[in-house]
Structure formats: structure tokens, C-alpha cells
Design a binder for these strands. Structure first.
Lengths: 208, 208
DNA sequence: TTATTACTGTGAAATATTTCACAGTATAAA
DNA sequence: TTTATACTGTGAAATATTTCACAGTAATAA
């Protein structure tokens, strides 16, 4: 049976939580504790893990390191993923140096912008290029993920170029809704929409 | 019957799409077109709108402006919402001047940081304060939404203060998972987790 | 050793959500 | 006026997801 995106989403958050637990040297964790941390129920967590073929220990729960290793294997979360950022404005440059990416295995290996001026002035350890070099650099440096931080008006064009370059996934920070082939993984990070959602939830008493 | 967060989420994105259509002076839009723009099916869109008591016109579809107005009314998306940003690092300052917030009715009225130094150096039209003035300013200026952009280690403390100040909703950009009372609307914008989700989706062939 | 406790694993039931099928409706063309 | 068309609205079916209930299991205490 196909694995649902709901499960994937929970497992990603679980992976992040396991990281914290492992740093605290906690050897075991129960479905109840995980459920609390993820905002789910213990039934759901057990169903998820059992569906993935991950087993726990009666009375102890799940082994933190073992569980983390399993999730890393099943969801490719262990090894490094190479990413690039397109658009080096306020947001783009903030993302370039966002340490959490590196810490969690997402290596930002390149930044692109159309302004030569901006490229020259930027102070970072990451290689920055003009946008016309997007395709060759992505291929050459084996980049899997593209992070779009350009204004909405240019976002689709950038996405098209990323797709042509053979990128596997796109994270879109522009408010534009992009059209990409179905085999490219794509997610929006639309800040305004997130605020809208919060406002709408309290307008309707729904609890997200 | 209670309205589901899935519907709310779709309606928020629909609202944003209707904004584009209205700027193009398109008078009517069909459920099929909306579905394509939102990545849903036309059945779902019609079910959603009919559930909300919104009616369309046979052969024409839904009236763009009318639909937008209805959604604005039902989800409080029309009027201004006052928000503040806590944490004025790279990301926080980028958010302070993010024009889309203002354009879409979210008015950033204040920024907070614990560093007096930073506060003095910042160049923006928005009022900035030291963090110790958080509570009085939120009450005084009637701020509804708090946007957290501090490092993970301080995020929970900031959230607690926001809740005590009577905030209604929180958008959390820190990777920390926060614990807030159930009546406070809360959403995470965890960049790393978004990348993780994309990587996990292509590890499992799931299409988000 | 036995009892107790704190867990997991999982079918079955309940619930939520999406999809389907098609009658109903308004517009435009003939 | 009639017919074709391009839609909506919605009950019913299908599917997906969550919750429940409880048997099974391992550790600990007595």
C-alpha cells in the first residue's frame, strides 16, 4: 500500500523530535510521549510505526536511536542533501546562512541572483552565481533541491529552469503558486497564507 | 457541523487566488479552474463551497468578487489584523519589511528584540522595542498576532509571554515545537522540516 | 515465583474526506 | 422556440484516517 503524506509529515516531525531526545540521551520513548510532542494520539503513532514495520518493546516503548535510524533509512533523512537558493534578497540571504539547514543535513552549496552587483557585495562562505549559470551549476554540483526566494513575478520562470536542470524538489518561499511536473516534489512556504490560516481558524473556532 | 481545517486551508488559498483573478478583472470562475489552481478536484471545491452556503451560477461558475467577499466575511480575511515580530535577526528584519503582509491586510505594527544595540541600529518605519516591553505594547496597541523569529532556545519563553499578553495567534519560525493553550491558534513555519518533507516524499515516491 | 504495571500491536468500529454520478439550471446558438 | 453546452449541487459510494478495545509482552516488585 502507498504511504500517505500525512504519515510522512508526522514522521519528519518525529525525526526532528528524536534528534532532541537523542541529545538528551534518552534511551526509550513511548508512543504517548511522541504523540504529545507531535500533537497526535498514541494510537496514531503506534499505527504509523507498525505500518512502517518498526517495532517497539513492551513496557519500554521505542528505542530512540533505533527509531531515528529506521526513519532516516526509510525517508532518506540521514545523508546530506545538496540544495541551492535562488534570489538573494533579504529573505534569500537570511536563508543562505540559516545554520539549521546545515545542522540537519541540508547543505546549501550555491546561491543565485540576477544582479551582478548583489552577487559581488554579498558576504558569505557559500558560492554565489548569476542566474544565467543556474542550469550548468546544478548539474555540475549535483544539486537536488531548489529553494525559491525571488519575487512572485519571476517564481514560475525560475521553477521552470530548475525543472529543466533536473532538480528533484522545490521549496517555494514566493507567494506565487507554481506549476511543476508531478514527479517533482514541491512545497509552498507562503507566510501570508499562514497568517491567513491562523486568522481564519480563530474566525471559525477551529483548532489546527 | 464543525468546519474542518482542511476546508479552511483550501479557502485561504482560494482567497489568495481570487485576489489574482479579481486583479485580472475576471468576472466568473469555475470549480474546475479553482481546483486546478489549488491542486484539488472540482468535486471537492463544489462540496466546500456548498458546505459554506456559497452558491454559483449554472454554466458560469462562481462570481469572483462575490466569492471573495463571502470568504472574507466567513474567515475574517477582509479587515486588517495587527501583528508583531519578536526577534530581529536576519529573518526577523526580513519579515518586518515583507511587503506582502501589509498588502494582504496583515499590519506589522511592532518589532521586539532583547538587544538594545540591535534596536538602535535597525532601519525601518516600524516601531521597534526591547523585549521587556512586549506585554504592555501588545495590550496598548491591540495586537492579535505574534510572529516568533527568535532562536529555538528562547521560543517557548516568548510564546508564554505572548499568551499572557492575550495574543490570539502565533506563527512560529523557530524550529522549536511550542506548547500553547488550545484556544490560541498556532502554526509552525519550520524550514528544515519542509525540506525534510520534500526529501522524504521523493524517498517514498509520494506526491504531496 | 507470581502479580502488577506500563507499555505495544492490531483487528474492528467510527469518523472524516474524497470521488462519483447525475439531475438541475442558466446561457447561447440555431 | 428548441437544442446544445457548460456549468452547479448533492446524495450515495468509495476511500482514507483516526479511534477504540483489548490481547500480548517484558520489566519490576513482592
Amino acid at each position: 500500500m502507498k504511504i500517505s503524506t500525512k504519515i510522512i509529515e508526522r514522521m519528519c516531525r518525529m525525526f526532528s523530535h528524536l534528534d532532541i531526545l537523542s541529545k538528551e540521551n534518552k534511551p526509550y520513548v513511548s508512543s504517548k510521549e511522541l504523540a504529545f510532542a507531535l500533537g497526535a494520539t498514541d494510537y496514531t503513532i503506534r499505527k504509523d510505526l507498525s505500518f512502517l514495520g518498526i517495532i517497539g518493546y513492551g513496557r519500554k516503548g521505542y528505542e530512540v536511536l533505533g527509531l531515528k535510524r529506521e526513519l532516516a533509512k526509510k525517508f532518506h533523512l540521514g545523508h546530506k542533501h545538496r540544495a541551492c537558493i535562488i534570489g538573494l534578497g533579504r529573505l534569500g540571504t537570511a536563508l543562505l546562512d540559516y545554520e539549521k539547514f546545515q545542522e540537519e543535513g541540508f547543505e546549501i552549496v550555491a546561491g543565485f541572483d540576477k544582479s551582478t552587483n548583489k552577487i559581488e557585495r554579498i558576504r558569505t562562505n557559500i558560492d554565489v552565481y548569476t542566474i544565467d549559470r543556474l542550469k550548468p551549476i546544478i548539474k555540475e554540483r549535483n544539486i537536488e533541491l531548489g529553494i525559491i526566494a525571488v519575487p512572485a513575478a519571476f517564481a514560475q520562470e525560475v521553477a521552470d529552469n530548475l525543472v529543466e536542470s533536473g532538480i528533484k524538489g522545490i521549496l517555494n518561499f514566493s507567494p506565487a503558486k507554481l506549476i511543476v511536473p508531478k514527479d517533482i516534489m514541491y512545497q509552498d512556504m507562503d507566510f501570508t497564507n499562514a497568517l491567513r490560516f491562523i486568522a481564519a481558524c480563530f474566525a471559525t473556532q477551529a483548532k489546527p
